[in-house]
Amino acid sequence: MTLMNTGKPKRPIIHPLMVRITHWINALAILCMVTSGWAIYNASPIFDFRFAKYLTLGGWLGGALAWHFAALWVLVINGLIYVLYGMLSGHFRHDFLPLSIRAIWRDFVAALTFKLKHRLGVYNAVQKLLYIVVILFGVGVVISGLAIWKPVQFQFVTGLLGGYDFARIVHFAMMAGIVGFVAVHLVLVALVPSTLPPMITGRAPAHDPHSQDPEGAPI
């Protein structure tokens, strides 16, 4: 909120600057990690398929690995900043909690019957669940990645994940979870395009009645 009164009421910030910055850096990092990861997977597939080459990054295995192990620093550092911010600022506590199974079921049924109202700045229970789950997938993809990268130095972690070969499957599953989330996320943005500008400007659209509440959750 600005201290100067410009005469015109400013639309409230629903996505704080930190969330917007880390969101877009994360989007780029995930894109690099997933596409280079698919190229690495293709060198020795664990399932009976390969990813189409035009979806992969790096050109050959060495290039893909170079991308993967460079982008990982962006992913991890940005992710740590986001999680620390989320915990310290109250973003997680205010916006992802409380969460009950009953509320998830209620909003899930409402969504499937197209009765769920979208209110900018407030997450429904299904959204809250998905955001929490994808953060856990993010933690899981990093931990399983460490288990594959350092099966000797971090053999304790690799052992917890069922050994080197199974840790590869876990890493793949975490990637699949993240990609699945991104797919749903993009479909929902396409269905409710008004959610996109606030992720860039931070501000709620003027016509959104909910956004007039200055005490609204800063999301």
Binding site: L31, T35, T56, L57, G58, G59, W60, G62, G63
Partner: peptide, 13 residues
Amino acid sequence: RLFMRQALSFGAL
């Protein structure tokens, strides 16, 4: 051969 020219380029991105 392709590597030095193309592989570490932005390619798909």
